[in-house]
Amino acid sequence: MTAMVKAEGVHKSFGPVEVLKGIDLEVNTGEVFCLIGPSGSGKSTFLRCINHLEKINAGRLYVDGELVGYRQKGDKLYEMKDSEVAVKRRDIGMVFQRFNLFPHMTALENIIEAPVQVKGVSKAQARERAGQLLERVGLADKAGTYPSQLSGGQQQRVAIARALAMDPKLMLFDEPTSALDPELVGDVLDVMRDLAESGMTMIVVTHEMGFAREVGDSLVFMDGGVVVESGHPRDVLTDPQHERTKSFLSKVL
């Protein structure tokens, strides 16, 4: 198996505050990789580093074998231009806790926006594809609806469809169900489960331990900017080795 994402000693600081203090991990292609940890432990920050929404300060981060945000020539690193970073981001889908759908566009327009604007796909083709994606997330009848007229769960499913429309090879989920009413969580998790079964490589920051145990292939527990424990979700969740993992799990389970 090849590594889709590889982190070696990744550090990230905001001013004087060091948020990531040397993260080492590997995400295999086709794997569902769950990231758990207490609030403020740096989970979102790490996810944002992967598609270079944040710049790392030290270490190396590779996606699909290529450095994120930099080019290496000899032993020198060159920062990529914004336009080059943008090209890399096409292959990485991201789903946010607060959906971040474009409110001035209908569900369908949200989905076709990036394929048309970025990849130059024809509108007709993009529309057809968007229709299929909406059907896949169970919202075939909501194509012409604006986000404000959708429930949270529906919005999040449109957001997933929007990310999928770019045919990413990696999907990042940052607490995709945390902002949802409990009865809406299931629909979103179903879509994610379906996506996992189709073989998508997924990194999922989540508090849904049931989902992690059932769908996840690997799980990492982060605290204070470091990886405390990692392994198969079943093992970590049922038989944690570290005190910090134990106390965190006892609070959320």
Partner: peptide
């Protein structure tokens, strides 16, 4: 800010983000 972020995450450039996402809102 989440709008800019979502747009960037989809691979849209600064200019496109501004023109298609930020300015209309």
């Amino acid at each position: 800010e989440g709008q800019t972020e979502a747009s960037h995450a989809l691979g849209m450039s600064h200019t496109k983000t501004l023109r298609r996402i930020v300015i209309p809102q």
